[in-house]
């Protein structure tokens, strides 16, 4: 059946104008929505019952064949795709999403801050890198890759400009808590080390616990965000061990997996750093 035999019908009058024959019309009810919105119908020339059956079975055969093939192609294409190809495809998509996020990223966009009344009970989740005991006096924050590079004691960190924020902590598992953080902006630490603006700095930051069992990588834009803190207090009291004493990262720009506890070293680097959870199938960027 050729397509040009189809007749556009806009009610009965339209059909009369175009072909001199008439097709079905809807009840001439002004309240009929189809009439009110001037819906069209597309009808072929009248034909015999047998001819209609013949044309429909041709169309059915074609339609179901194409549809069935497309469906099977989809199912078996996905099933038979080698695992490496599949995981590469999904990993590259996460990286594509990261680039899209980076295009729209602005350090001026701040996460909402909340009144103290909204603070919720802190939630503890995960002790990776916290297994062994450390003594606060032995602890140092080792900074590399900017300025002279140096090691800071917790007292030296606390002597830097103090920043507080009450922000929503988001776990990649889907839960969230509202936390009062007190600490030093990473950007203030960078300034103290003689580093410049994000544009002049290396592209990435690698951070590790002292035992190097937990490690995260950040992009420079998010680590320099004004709400990215090296926190030493949580909800008004010094960090407990399980929440990452003596110093941890806190930021509403990334999920909790990126907010490394008991941070031992920060290295600014142009090489994309390893990341514990990225190596376990999660998004490297994990940016909010």
């Amino acid at each position: 059946m050729s397509e040009d035999k189809e007749i556009l019908i806009d009610g009965v009058r339209g059909l009369e104008d175009k072909s001199g024959t008439t097709g079905r019309s809807w009840p001439d009810d002004p309240e009929n929505t189809a009439t009110a919105l001037k819906e069209f119908r597309y009808l072929s020339e009248p034909m015999s019952d047998a001819e209609a059956k013949r044309q429909m079975s041709t169309r059915s055969r074609r339609g179901f064949l194409v549809g069935g093939m497309a469906g099977l192609l989809g199912i078996f294409g996905w099933r038979w795709m080698p695992d490496e190809t599949k995981s590469a495809l999904l990993r590259r998509t996460l990286e594509f999403n990261e680039r899209v996020s980076q295009v729209f990223y602005s350090p001026k966009r701040l996460a909402p801050e909340f009144p103290p009344s909204r603070i919720t009970a802190a939630r503890y989740n995960g002790a990776l890198g916290l297994e062994n005991e450390i003594t606060a006096s032995d602890w140092r924050l080792n900074v590399a890759g900017i300025g002279r590079g140096s090691a800071f004691t917790i007292e030296q960190i606390k002597a830097m400009p103090r920043t507080e924020m009450i922000t929503e902590f988001k776990c990649i598992e889907g839960w969230s808590t509202i936390v009062h953080w007190t600490g030093v902006r990473v950007s203030d630490l960078v300034a103290a080390c003689g580093g410049g603006s994000p544009n002049d700095l290396p592209r990435y930051v690698a951070m590790k616990t002292p035992d190097e069992k937990y490690y995260v990588g950040w992009d420079i834009e998010a680590i320099m965000h004004p709400q990215t803190l090296l926190a030493y207090e949580m909800n008004g009291v010094p960090l407990t061990n399980e929440h990452g004493a003596p110093l941890r990262l806190a930021s509403p720009t990334k999920y909790g997996i990126k907010q490394i506890k008991r941070i031992g070293s920060i290295e600014f680097t142009n090489e994309r750093p390893r990341d514990y959870w990225a190596e376990n199938g999660y998004d490297w960027y994990a940016g909010l």
């Binding site: 009965v12 009369e16 001199g20 024959t21 008439t22 097709g23 079905r24 019309s25 009808l43 009248p46 034909m47 209609a52 059956k53 044309q55 429909m56 169309r59 059915s60 074609r62 339609g63 179901f64 549809g67």
Partner: peptide, 18 residues
């Protein structure tokens, strides 16, 4: 929804001429 088409009864002509 697969083929795009349905079969309908042709209307009896209603124009006076027909």
């Amino acid at each position: 929804m697969i083929t795009g088409y349905d079969v309908v009864d042709a209307e009896k002509p209603t124009t006076p001429k027909e």
